[in-house]
């Protein structure tokens, strides 16, 4: 057992800045002859036989402007609630003209909480950009799922938190909208976990 007094400090964050594409998705900015593919272009390989869902939306700043210089990263289990080391991760940015991001993925299954209760299907989402001194973490839950009995959502719902901001709205079959609000009345719930 290691002594807890010897615990090191975590290295501090600094902003990812406006040029994160160079390091994280060079092909997206036409630095083409370096990496064959950008990492996280698709969250799951070989899932053609499964119905996919689309999660789309924008990231808004405090002026209500949809940002196009943010990077979003998602981490999730597969449709059966299973984790795979080389699957389940995606990385994407909003489109320069529409300012919308689009994630094509499988709808995650339920995963077990520590106490054996099932957590409602969700996708972990992190957001990094210029102006954010630390990466932000939130979760995408899905309209139509049982959110009342979810152990995390029921744990935090007393805190007058904007639970609604964590739920992707279903607009048609297999298509969900999830907008992120960095500030304002609709400010998204961000987690420390």
């Amino acid at each position: 057992m290691k002594n807890s007094r010897n615990i090191l400090d975590e290295t501090p964050f600094q902003t990812a800045g406006p040029f994160l594409h160079i390091g994280c998705m060079p092909n997206k900015i036409k630095i083409n002859n370096l990496y064959k593919n950008d990492l996280g272009e698709v969250p799951f390989k070989n899932k053609n036989e499964i119905e996919m869902i689309t999660v789309e939306g924008s990231v808004f700043d405090g002026n209500g402007i949809a940002l196009d210089d943010v990077m979003l990263e998602t981490w999730q289990c597969d449709e059966n609630g299973q984790f795979f080391e080389d699957n389940g991760f995606a990385r994407f940015i909003p489109d320069k003209s529409t300012k919308k991001f689009k994630l094509l993925t499988v709808k995650p299954g339920q995963v077990e909480n520590l106490d054996g209760k099932n957590q409602s299907p969700h996708i972990c989402l992190s957001i990094s950009s210029r102006g954010l001194n630390m990466t932000l973490n939130t979760r995408i839950y899905f309209e139509g799922d049982d959110l009342i009995n979810d152990p995390i959502l029921s744990m935090i719902k007393n805190d007058k938190v904007n639970i609604d901001s964590l739920v992707a709205k279903k607009i048609k079959k297999n298509v969900y909208v999830f907008d992120v609000f960095l500030q304002g009345d609709k400010e998204t719930v961000f987690f420390d976990m």
Partner: peptide, 17 residues
């Protein structure tokens, strides 16, 4: 100024993370 969230982060136990 227009990007930093104003509310306190909500603490939850890590699970998927």
């Amino acid at each position: 100024i227009f990007r930093a969230p104003k509310n306190k982060k909500i603490s939850i136990p890590s699970n998927l993370e």
